[in-house]
Write a protein that binds this DNA or RNA. Structure first.
Lengths: 156, 156
DNA sequence: GCCACCTTACTCGGATAAGGACTGTCCGAGTCGCTAAGG
DNA sequence: CCTTAGCGACTCGGACAGTCCTTATCCGAGTAAGGTGGC
């Protein structure tokens, strides 16, 4: 899985606690990562419709909907792409004992098993929202964590 | 996910139905893939202890244990490696608002959620055995499929 | 004093290079069966 | 006829290039605020 997924998720958690748009530069400094590369992933989130970007002097990124309505799966699909990790190449239709195409209407057993596993993975990711993650941060680090964050984000 | 995983799984299904060691050349021709590259993945299966390789004139590969005792997860881990797809880089410990190390004894919420999803994925893969896959092939293509396979594998 | 315009500084967005992993290939090490000569 | 040494062919195993994707970076397009000049 792409490392940018981790960055994007943490950024979404931060955005869920911000009251104003947060610039890519702030998010990059806050997490100690490359600004330009993080911007690339934020663009992917923007294309997917998860965040809204505003340009100009006080521009930045903000969530387009409530944090409880943004799931981990949304972010992973936005950054890593929607195509599944396992792609069946239909090798059953190759070689001397190839299965005839008219018998390949449904995916083969291997593809079905892989698809079921990936479905379980997606269901687990879909059950966790950005708001849930923010709650876990509060439980782990204390209620004042996001107050300090908002103080750091405030201009000046 | 690596494409070699698909090859390795299909090879294991074939091996579960063979009565003699099957050479890498036969497996490659049967699936219409590169022989030398497939051999690389078979070596990974051998290192993981899933298959036994015998050299010499009538050498080849065979399963080391019953097909019902070999899960999809075993094969995936043997080929793609045991390390999880998501690796937490601990970005919470970086930047101006870094979490102090003494508060990072347990994984962060993001890593826990990702780990839970991956756990679900592994559990699903572990619940499917090579024997189950062979059964699905019989259900899809008919009971005579593996008879034809054994006939093709027979020397001559 | 008020308004319109312009400059300016700051933001995002897409197009552009470097590194690493997956893909694909080759030749050498090792092993078993066959053959043939000798007892 | 039986034993056994040698030969040969076939197998796996690890070391070696090619190509695509991830990582990382840069500069240009766009926008809003603030200053400035004119009315």
């Amino acid at each position: 899985m792409t490392e940018g997924v981790e960055w994007a998720v943490h950024c979404c958690v931060v955005l869920s606690q911000a009251v104003e748009p947060v610039s890519a530069a702030q998010l990059a400094e806050l997490h100690g990562v490359s600004k330009t590369y993080l911007a690339k992933h934020l663009q992917q989130l923007s294309r997917a419709g998860l965040v809204r970007s505003t340009r100009g002097r006080v521009g930045g990124y903000e969530l387009t909907r409530a944090a409880a309505k943004v799931s981990l799966l949304d972010i992973v699909e936005a950054v890593d792409g929607p195509e599944p990790a396992f792609r069946c190449t239909e090798i059953r239709q190759r070689g001397p004992l190839a299965t005839p195409p008219e018998k390949c209407l449904k995916p083969c057993g291997v593809a079905r098993a892989m698809g079921a596993a990936e479905q379980a993975w997606r269901r687990s990711l879909a059950s966790v929202s950005v708001d849930d993650l923010a709650g876990s941060v509060v439980r782990d680090n204390g209620a004042g964590t996001f107050d300090a964050l908002r103080g750091w984000l405030a201009p000046g």
